[in-house]
Design a binder for these strands. Structure first.
Length: 319
DNA sequence: CGGGGTCAAGTCTCG
DNA sequence: CGAGACTTGACCCCG
């Protein structure tokens, strides 16, 4: 079976009930208010994450990518020193016990092949993500993937991926190593699925196949070939990413890398069982629409949907 | 209290 | 050579 999931934000809860999991602050505020305030925000974030997870279960979603911004300024303290740590941990444990596959996708600043401070920051950020999963009580495996891009090429893909592999082995904890995956990039100078196969051979990191990125940066492989290459690197059911092009379906002037608000084409899974995170801007609503399960929208939601739907409707009528 | 300018991090691309 | 983008806009100040 294929589970459908989406990334980070539940629009239904956000718009109607102000449920958000990414409360943060700018540097100035952190300097002024410190870990005390970070703790408050983190507690509210995890409490809201529990609501989102429960909403997902109530609506048939058993896959969800959590935000990597649950803990503001996480690199500047250890979670255990937060004033609200015990309460936060209790909520995380509750989340981890729910029957849903949780993943995360740390930011574009993570470069495991980087050097100096770049590498230090990367290790810190990735270890923090892994520690969150540990606190949730999740057994370390690719089931709960921590997925990143390989990062820049520094002018030499092979040398860079070799550095990535060395740092992976030398610098990361066992639990993090068990969770880390890499994803193919959308730009021709960055990494294709075929490029990333090198990493799999070196250190066994599975490849997250992103259909849309592949279409923009296919390398030598067809979609089916890249899909199968990535599929072969997994030791549990894979998680792949899917979205449609905003330029092709909603706005001819959009950047070619932009994701569409809605979903327009099915993902071909080539007869395999894979879970898919749909990276459409309208989040869970786009999946409900494909399923033909349009809920009764609140006036606030209708306003949001009408804004997003404009481009989509245009495509429909000019076809 | 709503709107707009601004915001940690690395690298690459585009204008 | 600076802005914008990336997996996700939210924070904070000012009028």
């Amino acid at each position: 079976m294929t589970n459908a999931g989406y990334a980070c934000i539940n629009l239904t809860l956000q718009v109607n009930e102000n449920v958000i999991t990414t409360r943060g602050m700018i540097k100035k505020t952190f300097t002024e208010k410190g870990v005390q305030y970070a703790s408050q925000l983190a507690l509210q974030n995890v409490q809201d994450l529990l609501k989102v997870v429960d909403w997902n279960l109530a609506h048939g979603f058993r896959l969800f990518r959590i935000t990597s911004d649950l803990f503001p300024w996480a690199s500047e303290y250890r979670m255990a020193e937060l004033p609200d740590f015990f309460e936060i941990r209790a909520v995380l444990e509750e989340i981890g016990a729910r029957p849903i596959r949780l993943t995360c996708h740390p930011g574009p600043f993570n470069h495991l092949a980087g050097q100096g401070k770049t590498l230090e920051n990367t290790v810190k950020d990735l270890e923090y993500q892994s520690a969150v999963f540990d606190l949730m009580g999740l057994v370390p495996s690719h089931w709960n993937k921590i997925n990143i891009h390989a990062g820049g090429t520094y002018g030499d893909k092979t040398a860079t991926l070799t550095r990535f592999a060395n740092n992976f082995t030398a610098r990361l904890s066992e639990n993090l190593r068990a969770r880390l995956t890499v994803e193919n990039d959308d730009r021709p100078n960055l990494y294709t699925v075929q490029d990333l196969l090198f990493l799999y051979e070196q250190i066994g990191t599975p490849i997250v196949f992103d259909y849309f990125h592949h279409s923009l940066n296919p390398g030598e492989q067809t979609e089916e070939e890249a899909f199968m290459t990535a599929y072969g690197t997994w030791d549990v059911r894979p998680v792949f990413h899917f979205s449609n092009s905003r330029r092709d379906y909603e706005d001819p002037k959009a950047r070619k890398e932009a994701h569409a608000d809605w979903l327009y084409t099915p993902a071909n899974t080539y007869g395999k069982d894979v879970d898919i995170v749909f990276e459409s801007k309208m989040k869970e609503l786009s999946i409900l629409r494909v399923r033909g399960e349009e809920p009764d929208y609140s006036p606030k939601m209708l306003k949001l949907i009408n804004t997003a739907a404009l481009a989509a409707d245009k495509v429909g009528t000019t076809d």
